[in-house]
Design a protein around this nucleic acid. Structure first.
Length: 532
DNA sequence: TCTATCACGTA
DNA sequence: ATACGTGATAG
């Protein structure tokens, strides 16, 4: 495809740094019907007092979701992604157009998928509804784009595709796939980490930014629940072409497959009535994502991290995830755009959120900003530093032919912490790229949160748990269409956490590729955190 | 719910 | 040609 992102077109501007940007928002075009377009601008800004902003070069980065229209179609119904033991790709594929990168600077692009909220869902009566509390999050893993690290010129040259990313429900997955729980809602996030030589992960000024397109949120399932989603997949996924066909064809095809003169009506067809099923997200459920209605908001954040050395980054994994309280990321309300805030925040066009927050600042809760109200989804936990790490070192780097990514184990992000903070990563171990397994390693401490955005990687990396204080708040800027991001610098602090490395995965399996890292941190949102 | 397998299609 | 990505299906 083409790129899609363009659609947005908006230009955003480069924004700002951390805080400054209060205004940032820009809006773009939006087109999102859903939301009103309020301007995003307002929404965002928050600043953190005290923080210093540095420009880390991440300020002008904009990310556009490719094929956003298709994502929106799914989102309006309630996107479902199949998860299997062997790993299943996502469809629609997550592809982005990135602009604003320094052509000569190297960046690592990676994704993680964080819990969208803290509920377990069920699909009954043709609609999604909450059926209980979410299970503890699985180890957060990061999927490092195979081209990482690569120059800004490389990333900007064409769409950046994460189509090979796979989702699994196998908590012991040895392949490095992203592990999710069935019937739980998730939010994919994109992280761009500066990986310059001069700015390696480890270094203190590692800068990164996070972009979230709320229309890419989905519920993980082992088999499709809403027939409308099945149909959208069949109609749009080339690999499912075999299931397309006119009704007539369908009839014959089914018969043929069944060896009968007449086909049995597919279960899916029968199974559901046509009724509208609400999207989990939007609709009723709510809470889930913002759904359709408007809520989308993308947020992105930028951060810088400073951190310590790379090594440090590696370290400590966090622990396990528990998502204790936090989780909820988005409170249900949040998702919706319930109004204004959201609107404001939401970008019209895309719903992207950007984070920026520094953490250095410490702002405690301020974080609110963003999330605040309702609007946003939760910030997910963090990325892990791992990624960063990984990035940096690059075990994967290009060297490997394929680079695969490493997985690191990370902790999960807690919401609480989400905010800005940091994520920790684990290290990759790349030596071989081993994946890590997650489980065990986690440390208890929790909180590494990272915020989505802002954290510094380094910090992230290890951050130990950041004290709440640390969390930074993020700002959400949303750019509307564009994701904005802001970046901030965090100055660093080092947290020192111990780093721990993850054990390598020894398994015999050699995983093919690991592009995945585990996430350690989660971000906390200040707000939430506050709560906590 | 989840899994393994299948037929069919893409790449 | 091989490898592998699809949803459907049965268990």
């Amino acid at each position: 495809m083409a790129n899609g992102g363009d659609q947005f077109g908006l230009a955003e501007r480069p924004d700002s740094d951390c805080m400054d940007s209060p205004k940032e928002a820009k809006q773009e075009n939006h087109s999102f019907p859903l939301n009103s377009p309020a301007s995003p601008q307002t929404a965002s800004s928050q600043q953190i007092p005290g923080c210093t902003v540095e420009h880390n070069g991440m300020e002008g980065i904009k990310v556009f979701l490719h094929d956003r229209e298709l994502w929106t179609k799914f989102d309006e119904v309630g996107t479902e992604m199949i998860i299997t033991k062997a790993g299943r790709r996502m469809f629609p594929s997550y592809k982005v157009k990135v602009t604003g990168l320094n052509p000569k600077t190297k960046y690592i692009l990676l994704m993680d998928i964080v819990p969208g909220d803290d509920h377990r869902y069920k699909f009954a009566d043709n609609k999604w509804s909450i059926t209980g509390k979410a299970e503890p999050a699985m180890p957060g893993r990061l999927y490092v784009h195979p081209d990482s690290p690569a120059t800004g010129a490389h990333w900007s040259r064409q769409l950046v595709s994460f189509q090979k990313l796979k989702l699994t429900n196998n908590h012991l997955d040895p392949f490095g796939h992203i592990i999710l729980n069935s019937m739980h809602k998730y939010q994919p996030r994109l992280h761009i980490v500066k990986a310059d030589e001069n700015n390696g992960f480890g270094s203190k000024n590692t800068a990164f930014c996070t972009h979230v397109f709320t229309e890419t949120a989905f519920i993980a399932v082992t088999s499709y629940q809403n027939h409308k989603i099945t149909q959208l997949k069949i109609e749009n996924n080339p690999f499912a072409k075999g299931f397309r066909g006119s009704d007539d064809n369908e009839f014959h095809r089914m018969a043929k497959l069944q060896g009968k003169d007449y086909p049995v009506v597919p279960r899916s067809t029968v199974r559901q009535r046509a009724g509208p099923a609400g999207s989990p997200f939007g609709g009723e459920g709510r809470g889930l994502r913002g759904s359709p209605e408007g809520a989308g908001s993308p947020y992105s954040c930028d951060n810088d991290l400073n951190s310590s050395s790379p090594q440090e980054l590696l370290s400590p994994p966090p622990t396990h995830y528990t998502l204790p309280h936090l989780q909820h990321i988005p409170p249900p309300q949040g998702y919706h755009c319930t109004k204004r805030k959201v609107e404001e925040n939401c970008s019209p066009g895309n719903r992207q959120l950007s984070y920026k927050k520094p953490f250095a600042c410490s702002p405690p809760s301020e974080g609110e900003s963003y999330y605040h109200p309702s609007s946003y989804p939760p910030p997910p936990p963090a990325l892990s530093n791992n990624a960063a790490l990984a990035l940096t070192d690059s075990p994967y780097s290009s060297d490997m032919g394929q680079r695969q990514a490493c997985m690191f184990a990370g902790s999960e992000p807690r919401l609480d912490e989400l905010n800005c903070t940091p994520w920790s990563y684990t290290c990759p171990l790349p030596s071989a790229m081993t994946p890590i397994d997650p489980f065990p390693p986690y440390t208890p401490h929790p909180p590494y949160s990272s915020s989505p955005q802002g954290s510094r990687l380094s910090a992230i990396a290890h951050q130990s748990s950041p004290p709440l204080g640390e969390h930074v708040s993020h700002d959400p800027y949303q750019s509307s269409g564009a994701p904005t991001q802001t970046s901030q610098n965090l100055h660093t602090r080092q947290l020192s956490p111990p780093l721990r490395e993850y054990p390598r995965y020894t398994s015999s399996l050699s995983p093919p590729l690991y592009h995945t890292l585990e996430t350690h941190i989660r971000c906390g949102v200040p707000e939430w955190s506050a709560a906590s």
